[in-house]
Amino acid sequence: MAVIEVKNLSKSFKVKLKEKGLKGSLKSIIKPKYKTIKAVRNVSFSVEKGEIIAFIGPNGAGKSTTIKMMTSILYPDKGSIKVMGLDPSRDRKALSYEIGTVFGQKEQLWTHLTPYDNFKFFGAIYDIPEKAIEKKIDELRELFELDSFINTPVRNLSLGQRIRCEIVASLIHEPKVLFLDEPTIGLDPVVKENIRTLIKRMNKEYKTTIFLTSHDVGDIEKLCKRVIIINNGTVVMDDTMENLKYHYLNKKIVEAKMKEMVNLEDEEGITILKDKGYNLKIEVDTTKKSVSDALKLLNPDNIIDINISNVPLEDIISDIYKNRD
């Protein structure tokens, strides 16, 4: 059963225009002008139970607007959304019990209270009985390894510790769907990795469906099996991570250490990325030339060492962004 079902979703914003200078400011008071920005245009997709899905796109692509419509913060202009069978704009309260949200750039914890008091607070607003809250806090405390700072006021925590607490706070009421909007923003690589492991563990343990937006390719690559790319308000790609990586651009990177120098210039389907005499790095477009043909050109007897890898996901994604602009 689909946990999230979005059909033909659209949303526009009216933005006030102001000409430059004092004259422009005065003019905008007397005769204000507005511009309509189409933030989301005809977006449709669905998400199954237990999936971890990456919802990505460049800045201003419409990701956050879509998430905000799914979490009942914004009202759509057109189209329909069903999250756990509920309509976010009509069943706001009922939906709030089913979903959890973490906005990496917005704090939802009370900064002067300890994480423990915060968790108790979130338990209370979701009408969870006292005993059940305690049990849940104990369970999550262990899963997210919070023991060393659970009684330290949130304002004194490091960013990584705070994000962990933000995630726990959004899990207290056992949501079926968790919306994570850039959860690893501003974190160092070690803490990022730690958060990713915890998200994975949580997904496995509670079968929580996770809807993730991030600019960090590592988050997407390590957590998600499916990726939806949005640009200029429309879905430009909705595919599995495997397909995205292996078939979308059909390109392989071949790095080879040679006994003798080889000249591959003007070869169709081959782009030389680096050529340092005996060390060569090329990109093979497999729609034009197979990897085995490329290896034949290098001459296998001539190769000392070789490494064949996929194009980094980061490059693939930025290529998709650029091509669809």
Binding site: K68, S72, I73, L74, L95, S96, F103, I125, D127
Partner: peptide, 9 residues
Amino acid sequence: NVAYNINKP
């Protein structure tokens, strides 16, 4: 900020 209070029960 008011928006982030909307999706709470």
